[in-house]
């Protein structure tokens, strides 16, 4: 066998391997990415409220082992010492506890208001309105020692610009349910 034919043969083999490798890349790139990013994607999905689950007005939805129902959303107008054009908004929920292991299921509980543009407001500490004794916030309810079948009354207070109050709707996210979250429709919807 001459050197020339050897070269030619190895050239053939090389071209074959080049083609094979190009095809393999199609498989290997996603595989390598998936292998490396798997844990991070899991963390990302477990930490963000990404996919809304719509809840019609007056309906309750099973979420984090309990049944959630929006009972009221109203503005508290006429308060002094607030930034101009801002309105405190109260969101009231009634939650029938199913699985009482709230410390696990309700971890990372986050109630928010979302407007038509997708802007999100978290509960504020700038306004504190007096509430009846048996009203909890989402976080304090975790430690309320509620049992199966109990009904918890939750209230969160927000501070929202006046022009946003027309389109805001409340939403609830729990670590145990993320990336899904509850998105409540209002009476007027």
């Amino acid at each position: 066998m001459t050197a020339r034919s050897l070269d030619w043969e190895s050239g053939q083999g090389e071209r074959k391997w080049r083609r094979r490798s190009l095809w393999a890349l199609l498989l290997l790139v996603p595989l390598a990415l998936a292998g490396q990013a798997y844990d991070s994607v899991k963390t990302l999905l477990g930490g963000e409220d990404l996919f809304p689950r719509q809840v019609a007005w007056g309906q309750s939805a099973h979420f984090g082992g309990s049944d959630w129902k929006l009972t009221d959303l109203r503005g508290a107008f006429g308060m002094s010492s607030l930034p101009p054009d801002s309105v405190p908004v109260l969101a009231d929920f009634s939650v029938k506890v199913g699985d009482p292991d709230l410390q696990k299921l309700w971890l990372g509980c986050k109630v928010m208001l979302i407007d038509a543009e997708g802007r999100r407001w978290s509960p504020t500490s700038a306004v504190s309105l007096k509430a009846p004794g048996d009203v909890h916030t989402c976080v304090s309810a975790i430690f309320s020692g509620a049992r199966r079948g109990d009904t918890l009354n939750l209230r969160e207070t927000f501070l929202v610009p006046r022009q946003a109050t027309k389109t805001i709707r409340p939403a609830v996210g729990l670590a145990s349910e993320r990336p899904h979250f509850l998105f409540f429709q209002l009476e007027k919807d």
């Binding site: 391997w17 080049r18 490798s21 190009l22 393999a24 890349l25 290997l28 790139v29 595989l31 390598a32």
Partner: peptide
């Protein structure tokens, strides 16, 4: 192509 495939 071969080199990249090997790294992957």
């Amino acid at each position: 192509p071969q080199l990249v495939a090997m790294v992957l």
